[in-house]
């Protein structure tokens, strides 16, 4: 038996109901969790900037190698060089966040440009973008990144540029599809008839009013993807290089000791990756549901 219930009062004007009241409970939970993760990330920068870390993450303590959690003042224990895992965990997110933002910015800005070109101005651009999309799809992304690393140096920013570029066709095709859908509804034509400039139509009517939810979701997903990509590269040894802490190289370094029963050096960053990626995914998902449903009826 499924339950459906209605407002007890007569609702005459639905636009007055704030959107978080119309959103479902689960969406609210998702979004709050996502925002919590974002706050944690920002918190990491504050903690780093004001030197509030429990230990220096780079300080090597050869007397306390692989100390288990909750022992000798280290909340999450120490790693194979005696460095405090908690401090490294807190600083570790910083290896991703700014590079991730770069990847997102590249994907969103270039993707939007191409999407608008293809969707708004027609079939020629559309064909070209489809070809580029096919080209990039046929080329494994990891291979592309490894080539890049081999050609230049294993820098996280170089990697993130590639991640951003490979995401461009995804965003472009989404925006293109949305514009083609909107064009069927004639209001773009009506705006032209009104005398609005193309610039206004594209930025205000199309991107701001109708595509912002797509872009927000792509941004949150892009961040999650950047983290995953760095992790897998670190595991191969091409990601952020020691001694700079990143969750990826922490997992990689800790994994060697898993067989000895020393689980904490790799488990803590792995869990951090899991919850952070989940946070960004849920944030995008929840925002999508809330934004779309708010305006639908």
């Amino acid at each position: 038996m499924k339950r459906y219930s209605q407002y007890s009062v007569e609702v005459s004007d639905f636009s007055d109901v704030p959107f978080w009241k119309k959103a479902s409970f689960m969406d609210l939970v998702y979004v709050s969790y996502g925002i919590f993760i974002v706050i944690l990330v920002i918190g990491s920068y504050i903690v780093g900037a004001f030197d509030l870390l429990p230990y220096d993450p780079h300080e090597i303590n050869l007397e306390l190698l692989m100390a288990p959690p909750q022992s000798s003042g280290h909340f999450l224990g120490t790693d194979f060089m005696g460095r405090d895992i908690l401090s490294r965990l807190i600083i570790g997110i910083q290896a991703y966040f700014l590079p991730g933002l770069l990847a997102i910015a590249i994907a969103i800005i270039l993707g939007t440009c191409f999407g608008v070109l293809a969707g708004y101005w027609g079939s020629g651009f559309d064909t070209i973008i489809t070809y580029i999309n096919n080209l990039l799809n046929s080329f494994p992304r990891l291979v592309l990144i490894l080539l890049m690393v081999a050609a230049f140096k294993p820098d996280i920013y170089y990697i993130m540029v590639i991640v951003g570029i490979t995401n461009v066709p995804v965003v472009a095709s989404l925006i293109k599809g949305k514009i083609q859908f909107l064009k069927q509804k004639y209001f773009i034509e009506a705006a032209t008839a009104l005398g609005l400039k193309n610039r206004v139509i594209i930025f205000k009517h199309i991107l701001w009013h109708n595509c912002r939810s797509i872009l927000i979701i792509q941004a949150t997903l892009g961040m999650a993807e950047a983290i995953l990509m760095e992790t897998s590269l670190s595991y191969l040894g091409f990601g952020v290089q020691e001694p700079t802490p990143s969750w990826g190289n922490m997992v990689q370094a800790g994994a060697n000791y898993l067989m000895q029963g020393k689980f904490w050096p790799s488990t803590a960053p792995a869990l951090a990756i899991l919850f952070t990626i989940m946070g960004f995914h849920l944030l995008g998902d929840g925002l999508n549901n809330m934004l779309e449903r708010r305006r639908n009826k």
Binding site: Y4, K22, R293
Partner: peptide
Amino acid sequence: FYSKSKQAF
């Protein structure tokens, strides 16, 4: 019918 967005029948 039930309208989910308007929470009403």
